[in-house]
Design a protein around this nucleic acid. Sequence first.
DNA 1: CATGAATGAGCTTTCATTCAT
DNA 2: AATGAATGAAAGCTCATTCAT
Lengths: 207, 207, 207, 207
Amino acid sequence: MARRKDQERARRTILDAALATVVDRGVGKVRIRDVAEFAGVSPGTVHYYFEDLENLLRTVHREASDRFFTARLEMVTEITDARRKMGALIWAGLPASDADTLVVALYRLEGYTNLAPQHGDLITSLFDKQVAVYLNALEVGVAQGHFLIDASVLDVAANLVALEDAYGLHIVSGNRTMTKARAAQLICSYARTATCCPDIVTPPKEL
Amino acid sequence: MARRKDQERARRTILDAALATVVDRGVGKVRIRDVAEFAGVSPGTVHYYFEDLENLLRTVHREASDRFFTARLEMVTEITDARRKMGALIWAGLPASDADTLVVALYRLEGYTNLAPQHGDLITSLFDKQVAVYLNALEVGVAQGHFLIDASVLDVAANLVALEDAYGLHIVSGNRTMTKARAAQLICSYARTATCCPDIVTPPKEL
Amino acid sequence: MARRKDQERARRTILDAALATVVDRGVGKVRIRDVAEFAGVSPGTVHYYFEDLENLLRTVHREASDRFFTARLEMVTEITDARRKMGALIWAGLPASDADTLVVALYRLEGYTNLAPQHGDLITSLFDKQVAVYLNALEVGVAQGHFLIDASVLDVAANLVALEDAYGLHIVSGNRTMTKARAAQLICSYARTATCCPDIVTPPKEL
Amino acid sequence: MARRKDQERARRTILDAALATVVDRGVGKVRIRDVAEFAGVSPGTVHYYFEDLENLLRTVHREASDRFFTARLEMVTEITDARRKMGALIWAGLPASDADTLVVALYRLEGYTNLAPQHGDLITSLFDKQVAVYLNALEVGVAQGHFLIDASVLDVAANLVALEDAYGLHIVSGNRTMTKARAAQLICSYARTATCCPDIVTPPKEL
DNA sequence: CATGAATGAGCTTTCATTCAT
DNA sequence: AATGAATGAAAGCTCATTCAT
């Protein structure tokens, strides 16, 4: 029984190590050996848990997506005022230069075109889920009377996610003129225009 | 003299071959040998013209950026009405699933984080240039009295480019729910909101 | 006591699994893990009973040889007429394409040159024993007045075994022009010539 | 042009090295590295000429078969008297304990069941060709009035080859009771019986 | 100039074997 | 007695790069 738990923990350790490796070596340069070293196990062990590199990377991506999404979902439910909710979402979706392991790794993995077709599906699915989160915030804002949205709410939500993705990628790619603050400001600018609500600001005071 | 021209042609052939290889193998899987085969030369020849793989890829990226940018610039100057100009820009900036070698390759290369730091600069620079193009269109639109822009024009331009990047990446990554038409529609939705001009549509009739 | 019996049974299960694995993966491709899986035990258990792979394979070979030899011996004693005895021996010594687990495995193992020196002894010993069986049948035939043998009886017996080996190997190796029936016919042809007895036929009617 | 010849020679060198390696390590234990070392080239070079190990081994087998067959064919045509021809064939088809690189390697390869299906075809084909050689000798013997063959000549030829194979394998496998001389004697015994010609002897005086 | 044969470092992957439980 | 997670040595294969021609 203890065995089972140990195994689960080893798996986790490797997954975390892989995430870290993606962050500090870049997706295309992840070697099994690095991951193993980082996890403090032997290369054989990595293979014991994950058939091959692609498999490992895909799993990391899936888990990272889930963790990221869950975190945002929690945040959304905790904040009631739609205006503050929007600001918080925008801020939390952007990676901070090179801390923020999870988000950085996620962006790296998203941009990694070399994984099998299923990878595309994963990206799609995360995108759609993110859209759902923004959609919720927008609709709540409308219901609260804070937002007034002229265009399709779905389109606005999609665009917010797209902006987040694009700027996040710039930050992670090392575009020095694009800081997290600037990115947040740009996205907010759109959010305000689209919702006719000048009160959306970021970073939110309390963070 | 003829020698000089021959060399220039060989170089071009290799660059084109590299571009094609990026498109059909993915950036991370480009092998010198593939490029050589595609170009109809020997691997040694590729090295003769380009120090190493990174160098080749960076050059391809730079040239592709330039070609892409020049093409858009020409388009902008040819169309005078800012509304049609916007529509055309948006449409032309998106890759068509898997044709569109130049644009696909560009997106692939943009997302490739494994190139040296200078690569980040290149991305930055292309981003800025794209922003400049949109900026021009927006300002012309304002001058023509078609657009009414509340927020910072620079921010709007940046957002347009960011949306284009994000959706383009989705298309190239094989996100099946994101078509070129849908992406164009989403970007236009933003463009209309930001400019208070309902006449921006895409794909433009004449294309 | 029950313990002792359990262990013996586990050992047997592993040996049988190894035999089966030799048949369907080929001697050179037998992996401990395969054998373990086949036997429904863990790899560790295989090691618990057999020092290493070579040891296991050698044991399988020895046991298979014994089982095979015993079976033939029984057959020989059951049939009294030397002519029918010969036919039966020839037929039973040939593997049927890919059923016939025991005989197929035996041929596979015989041909496996990678086992230690002792392995050669085992082959020799099996060969000699087989020769003894044929020798017996030949001498009985002479005594019964059915066979008339000009050359050395020992040589004839050796040649019969050799032919059996050679054709058996062809069948197991996937030589498509060599069927069990054809092989039997060829060996019989020799048997008839050597014994001046036209009545040796195979497959024997009663099988 | 010199290039072409160099390449051909390098290929040959590797092939010869592989043959030698098969002889002194056993088929199942041939490592690319060994072959490379033996050939005095780098492991990469072996891969440059042969896709993978299986490919290399198959090629070695094919070439060895051809060389072996050609050699026997020459011998046959050089000797006119069928009785001496038979003796020479039998003798030349048997490996001498562990000299005789070509023949030893051939036997090793023949017994190697781990190669792909095509391998079976190769064995078949060599068997058939060998049969043809013996067939020729037998028919010539009949024509010369030296041999009197009762059974099917084809069957006799097949049996001669089979005996050769079987005893050859014993010799190569390290069966210490089976010497080349004894094997030759056994096969001759059969040959004499089948042809009713007591003059077939081996080793032939002149060798 | 251009070639392409040859290299060998580097990586993945396999798998018998060990050992704590 | 039996397990199976973990190991790590061993091997194959890839591919950028070099250099003699």
